[in-house]
């Protein structure tokens, strides 16, 4: 059980970093602006998932699976709280991700609008041809 848990977790981490690599390739190497923006959203989503994953403190340990960050008892004792702090998923990364998603939404929208405008003005979204500013 423990090995499987660790294995799955490692797969998750590995695929996240693999995803970072793919999306960076997409942003830096694909010629089309639209594809660049798609890669950018993949990139920021990967970053967000990474942040969420970080919130699962001590997940690979099988004896203490993480619990939702909600205190169920109405009047918790100190022991309850200590246990809760050890077990619960860290809510802060989720808050960070929420902020990052909102910001990412704004940036993506803006970039899509600009791409549309580029397409209107240049007739293409290929960055090799959108290169009037040089030197």
């Amino acid at each position: 059980m423990s090995e499987l848990n660790t294995f799955l977790f490692n797969i998750l981490l590995f695929s996240l970093f693999f995803n970072v690599g793919i999306s960076l390739y997409g942003i830096f190497a694909r010629p089309s602006l639209i594809k660049k923006i798609i890669a950018l959203t993949i990139f920021s989503d990967t970053a967000n998932v990474l942040a969420i994953a970080v919130g699962y403190r001590g997940w690979p340990s099988p004896s203490q699976p993480p619990i939702p960050p909600v205190i169920t008892t109405t009047e918790p004792s100190i022991d309850d709280l200590t246990w809760f702090a050890r077990q619960a998923v860290d809510p802060l990364p989720q808050a960070l991700v929420l902020t990052a998603i909102v910001i990412g939404l704004a940036v993506t929208l803006f970039l899509v609008f600009l791409t549309l405008q580029v397409y209107r003005l240049y007739g293409t979204t290929d960055v090799r041809r959108v290169a009037r500013l040089r030197g």
Partner: peptide, 28 residues
């Protein structure tokens, strides 16, 4: 409506978004 301005903005914006996201990963 000025081609150069839009081109400059998208170049700046695209890589700028990558830069801030990388910083976010660093924060993680």
């Amino acid at each position: 409506n000025k081609p150069e301005a839009v081109e400059a903005a998208i170049k700046y914006g695209l890589f700028g978004a990558v830069a801030t996201t990388l910083y976010f990963i660093g924060l993680v």
